[in-house]
Structure formats: structure tokens, C-alpha cells
Design a protein around this nucleic acid. Sequence first.
DNA 1: GTAGACCTTGACGCCGACGTCCGGGCAAGC
DNA 2: GCTTGCCCGGACGTCGGCGTCAAGGTCTAC
Lengths: 157, 157
Amino acid sequence: MRIGELARRAGTTTRTLRYYESRGLLAARRGENGYRSYDEEDLRLLRQIKTLQDFGFELEETRPFVECLRSGQPEGDACPASIETYRRKLAELDACLARLQDVRERLRVQLARAERRSHGPAGAAGAPRGGAAAPEPRCELAGPAPAVTEEGARPWT
Amino acid sequence: MRIGELARRAGTTTRTLRYYESRGLLAARRGENGYRSYDEEDLRLLRQIKTLQDFGFELEETRPFVECLRSGQPEGDACPASIETYRRKLAELDACLARLQDVRERLRVQLARAERRSHGPAGAAGAPRGGAAAPEPRCELAGPAPAVTEEGARPWT
DNA sequence: GTAGACCTTGACGCCGACGTCCGGGCAAGC
DNA sequence: GCTTGCCCGGACGTCGGCGTCAAGGTCTAC
């Protein structure tokens, strides 16, 4: 299959695929006309990458998994390097969670204090009021995957 | 005081101060020679900004607090807009924590499965072994503040 | 007068993971 | 032949929060 189809099936873009190729992940064969050619294996590699990215892995960190798959393993995390990466990532996540929880608590306290102060004392200035449509959570983790569109039947469109 | 001194006292750099000025936070008076001139109030503004940044606030999100202080309030979070920002941030943090915890759990499960598989079956390839010096936690929150250097007595140096 | 420490503005660099645009080639249907 | 749709590579843009360098002005001490 060509790059456009692979991109659609993987729920990504051609630009992304070319980018991955430039980074050395996901090499493509070429047809006579120079077009990139992919197979089902490549789709699996791509899905592995996407899954890990959803877990907050950086592109580089998905490399062990991709190479593991390419080495013939049925699962990207069947190799020691992949498992090691899992462990590192888990540790990072724990450190991250600890920090965020600490900050959350401190922020909560600050808010409580500020609210207490603003209840009694003077300084009445109309509050912003009304839901201002939350802007962006920001977790550097990308929301709950936007659903991978499989090629077949797409009633919408 | 001039920009260099303020930067030192606030534990930041002159570049940062000029950047804040360009963003409309922290305006400076100018001396006859064109040099920026700051006072203790500015130091307070800066500290407010730093504190919030440590909490993961983006620069723009510190604006309500800074303006609150400039309006004469004794505390940057004494204004409704600041409190509103606290609330938004707290909500964001909660959403972020929920996502991270979910990811953590999924990652933990994946790791456990991968480890189980790699215990029995073949595929013995020397594991990386040895601590590889943790690279970078990444929380977008900046570690536990590097201690603000106050101008007076500095035995080191 | 001259070295050194400080200040000024302006502009480019960085990082990650792509988005977007450009000019041009290729393939298929009408 | 012409349009439409896909493909190619190259290059610049994005975002936040500054770092870093360049070329020059200012003030102080010796």
C-alpha cells in the first residue's frame, strides 16, 4: 500500500510517516515510480508507535519497541531494551505524579487561603462569571486517542 | 536598582526580565541614561511570577496575579481573576493527574505482562544491566526551585 | 586613558513533532 | 487533452521561554 492509505489506516498523516522515516523509524520500500510502499507489518509498527506516544513516550523512546518488532518478535515489548524502557518510563511517571500531587496540594491550600481572605474583607469587583470554556489541560500526553479510522465503510463523510 | 541586581535577587537572568517586559508584565522605569530602573515592588512581582511558574503556570496565566499586585493589593491572589485562575489550574491539574494515573496503571500492566512473557520463553539477550543514570523526568513543572539568592553575604564565589 | 563591569537593542538558536506550502511528477478516467 | 487525486522532496513555520551572540553605549576605578 502507498503512504496515503497507510496514513489513513493508522489514523495519522503522510507528513508524519515521512517524518518517522527521516528519523530512521519505519523504513519504506520504493516502487518503480519512486512511491513509498508499505505492508501490514508497517501498520503494526505504526500502531506500536502510536500506542506508546499515547502513553507519553517520546518518539526516540519508541525505537526499542520498533526495532524489537522488526527483529521478528511478535510483540514490541518482548525485548529487554523495551522492558527497560517501560521501567524507566514508569519511574518517570511516578516522579511526575509525586510532583504534580505536591503542587496540587499546595495550590489547593493557596486557593483556600485566597478565598477565605476574599470573603470577609472589602474589594468587591465583579467576578468574571460564566463558564469560559476550559482552554487546555496540558499534560503532554495527548487526549484519549481520537479513534483510528479503518479504511472500510465510513458512513459519515 | 538596575536590571542585573534585580535579576540576581530574584534568582533569574536579565534576559528573562527583558522578556517579561516585552510580554507586558513587569514594566520598568528608565533612568537618564536609558537604563531600566526597578524597585522592591518589582521584586515582589517577579517573585509572584516565579512562584506561579513553579506551580506550572504559563507566563500568561500569571498576568492576573501581577496586575492584581500592581493594582495595589497586598497579595497577587486577592483579586477575583486570580482566584478564577487558581480554580482553572486546579481543575487542569486534576484532569492531568487522572490521565497520568490512568496511563501509569496501563503501563504497569503492560510491563507486568511483558516481564511474565520474557521469564519463561526463549530469547535470552543480555539485558542492559546497571543503572543508566535517569535522563529526565519531564513534568513540565520545573524541579523544586533552585533557591533564590539574596544579595547579601554570599560566602561561596 | 583604559580596563572592566554593567547597560542597551536586535536578531538568531533551541527543542519536539510535526503542519503547511511550493513546484513538479505520475496515473487514471472522461 | 484535461482534470483530479495522489505522490515526491525541500524548506520554512509553529509554540514557550528563554539562551546566546553581536555591536555598541555608559559608568566607575585605577
